[in-house]
């Protein structure tokens, strides 16, 4: 039958035989690598270059966890997943964690047997339209056809929005973002809708980027973050605090270049693993957070390197700025 159904049924079998006694950390350390689910290619978030090296802010979360648990940010095996495949891949144990522009929703957090470990990008749903249509507001898209990706919150938000505004619409639903983009380019739909952060990246990869415009409207909240299985609390904490360490480091002003500099700040010393026992309850070595910052960098470094203004994606920090600088990025106390 079809590949997707095969994956789903194989995963179901795996769930059947899966051992309930979960210890993901030991599994990862025994394997010597972290298996991380990412997208099939979302520029700036998770995409492979021509020689197969993955990069992006989502990829950096995987790398941070590998640095924390294995002491080496390079020891990650990336598994590209479409939106439809991602949750089954995680719950069946095919991947150790999922870091793939995944929106934290109530249903996903409470009824899939999964848990969100935090938010690494606050996003919202936006629209990209053909410039020749001369449209600059979603309200002008009554009756339009949209290209969307299956298995996303995008599908649901689109229907919600048009329903509540009493507008008609049609949606052509594809499996991968490449197909979705292809449909848009070929004129199958009038607009492509997805998370705003991805629109910029998608637009930059169009054959003619200037033929499309991203509208200013944002119709939903899309807090994106890493996800783990519900049955392993230690692992959840490791992933959550690896991300928090990156945010904390930025707040402390510590970068990959300065993490090993001597400091008298107790906060920095805890991050360096020179004081405190933050590693113990996680079952990690003392230098876990130091390794993350030294090898991956702090949140701001990762942001600027992958999606910041100096990259083709050119996303402003916006709400993803630290809370002390007017944004909503806020790591719980690192102590």
């Amino acid at each position: 039958m079809n590949k997707y159904l095969k994956i789903v049924s194989a995963s179901l079998l795996a769930v059947g035989f899966y051992n309930a006694q979960a210890d993901t950390l030991s599994d990862v350390q025994a394997k010597g690598s972290l298996t991380c689910g990412v997208s099939t290619g979302t520029p700036g978030f998770s995409s492979p270059d021509s020689s197969g090296n993955w990069s992006g802010v989502d990829v950096d979360v995987c790398r941070a966890v590998a640095a924390a648990t294995l002491g080496d940010a390079k020891k990650v095996k990336f598994v590209p997943l479409t939106a439809k495949e991602r949750f089954v891949a995680l719950s069946s144990g095919e991947i150790d964690m999922l870091s793939r522009n995944t929106t934290w929703t109530h249903t996903r957090d409470t009824s899939l047997g999964l848990t969100f470990a935090g938010v690494n990008y606050y996003d919202g749903q936006g629209f990209m339209v053909r410039k020749s249509l001369g449209i600059n507001d979603v309200k002008d898209l009554d009756g339009a056809t949209f290209c969307i990706q299956a298995g996303t919150t995008t599908e649901l938000n689109l229907a919600d929005y048009f329903r509540s505004n009493k507008m008609g619409f049609k949606a052509v639903t594809y499996d991968t973002s490449a197909q979705t983009k292809g449909g848009f380019e070929a004129g199958r739909c009038d607009a492509l809708t997805s998370d705003v952060s991805q629109l910029a990246g998608l637009r930059s990869t169009l054959k003619d980027p200037s033929s499309a415009v991203v509208l200013g409207n944002v119709i939903s909240k899309e807090p994106l973050g890493p996800v783990v299985r519900k049955d392993d609390n230690t692992w959840l904490n490791i992933v959550r605090w690896s991300l928090n360490a990156m945010i904390e480091a930025e707040e402390l002003g510590v970068t990959s270049a300065t993490i090993d500099n001597a400091s008298t700040s107790p906060g920095v010393q805890r991050l360096q693993g020179k004081s405190g026992k933050l590693n113990e309850s996680l079952g990690l070595s003392k230098d876990w957070s130091r390794n993350i910052i030294a090898q991956v960098g702090n949140y701001g470094e990762s942001f600027e390197r992958n999606i910041g203004m100096s990259t083709p994606i050119q996303l402003p920090r916006g709400v993803n700025q630290l809370w002390i600088k007017g944004g909503i990025l806020y790591a719980p106390a690192f102590r």
């Binding site: 179901l12 719950s91 249903t107 298995g151 996303t152």
Partner: peptide
């Protein structure tokens, strides 16, 4: 993107409700 059974049900519905 033709919306037949697998696309609609094992695809979208499965992803919304998660009951594989």
């Amino acid at each position: 993107g033709y919306t037949e059974l697998v696309t609609i049900f094992s695809g979208t519905v499965l992803n919304v409700v998660g009951q594989a």
